[in-house]
Design a protein around this nucleic acid. Structure first.
Lengths: 212, 212
DNA sequence: AGACGACTGGGACGATCGACCCAGTTCGGC
DNA sequence: GCCGAACTGGGTCGATCGTCCCAGTCGTCT
């Protein structure tokens, strides 16, 4: 085994752990399974991490940090908001179908965090990250299609995430892609119904001035 | 230890296992923890069940069968459909707040089933049961408030379950009851928008005659 | 070049897991 | 009352877990 800096080794172990978790679940992510996946020896694990818990904490932090980056994917600009939202949902769904294990692993990691006393604050941060990412997406989509949201973006984002999680769980359970497609259509209709033209003509209120 | 029929012993062990899972999670539900919770000896476990897997199968079957019964709770009749749906959502949410561990355990059990090859068909049945229960609830609610659904009840049920699962997950993560309330309001509005008066006056079609 | 610290490989530890075994105990049918 | 079957308690097995230890190896700095 060649010499590798500690940080790289930590990252490699986390990637290996994620591969094991994707394939066999959180409970199968033992230290031995992880180092076997990474092609290292057992001693390297405890040289890189003080304990398995420490690695799990870093793994979850890594996953949470990366989700936001990954989620900010393709939003088709120039079209209407309904089409844009529907396209975003489809992009996520395609990702889900391509790699269902990953999404299931995220649910498992959330359960793991909720069960671990020192990690029980993580899911809240995780969802805050989801909402923030969805909010950015919605604001970008609204800007690109010339609309504004009739509710605070955070509320719309929460609705979007909720519906998304909902049909993701159902699809993971019964793999009914047709039903999932109908739900995405419905979600796009519903979300789009919360959008209004950017310059409301009949309203006398001036949108430029912020409320005190 | 007094003498107890085998069936009662199996049921008692499953109840004990559920208590352990609620409190400490699926991974903590070892044979020793379960018999300690039930106040039995280790031998009783393997006398009642051939293996831990067999008990888990029966436990999941029990949970799935019971959910439908539990879900068919209170629907306030006589009011409008929006109020009825909102009340149903609130009833579920109250149950969730009262016992969050149980709902989290259900998610964990779903993950466990998806990871277990011989149980991977269970989540589909689980969700089919959810949809059926939600469908009955929606049909009953529509009947009680004098409306019909503009889409097949199964579709509306799937929407309801998706939103429900969505805000349940988010609430489990960040315990934001206010946001959950807003989402329930939104869900009630959205679902109610799919209802129409039972006797459409302008339509020439006769609702009495079934389509061939 | 030599030495010091970073790093690795392999073995071992105690704890805990599911499963099993078997000598006792207790109950119901005769 | 007695006998066979249902049932229990306690001990034990092999496997696997996270963690640790230690003798070796290899860069890197002086």
């Amino acid at each position: 085994m060649t010499r590798v800096p500690s940080d790289e080794r930590r990252a490699a172990l986390i990637q290996a752990a994620l591969a094991v978790i994707d394939r066999d679940g959180v409970s199968a992510a033992t230290t031995r399974a992880i180092v076997a996946e990474a092609g290292m020896s057992l001693a390297s694990f405890h040289y890189a991490f003080r304990s398995r818990d420490e690695m799990m904490r870093e793994l979850i932090a890594f996953v949470v940090a990366n989700e936001k980056r990954v989620t900010l994917a393709a939003v088709a600009p120039g079209t209407d908001i309904r089409t844009a939202v529907r396209a975003g949902l489809q992009a996520y769904f395609d990702l889900l179908v391509e790699n269902p294990q990953r999404e299931q692993a995220l649910f498992e990691l959330m359960n793991y965090s909720l069960r671990t006393p020192e990690l029980d604050a993580v899911p809240a941060a995780q969802y805050a990250s989801y909402f923030a990412a969805a909010g950015e997406l919605l604001e970008y989509g609204a800007l690109a299609t010339g609309v504004t949201w009739s509710r605070p973006v955070q509320e719309v984002a929460r609705i979007l995430i909720a519906i998304n999680d909902g049909y993701t769980l159902a699809w993971l359970a019964d793999r009914d892609a047709v039903a999932a497609g109908r739900l995405m259509d419905f979600a796009a209709d519903t979300i789009a119904a919360l959008a209004r033209p950017a310059r409301p003509s009949p309203r006398p209120a001036t949108p430029q001035e912020p409320q005190p």
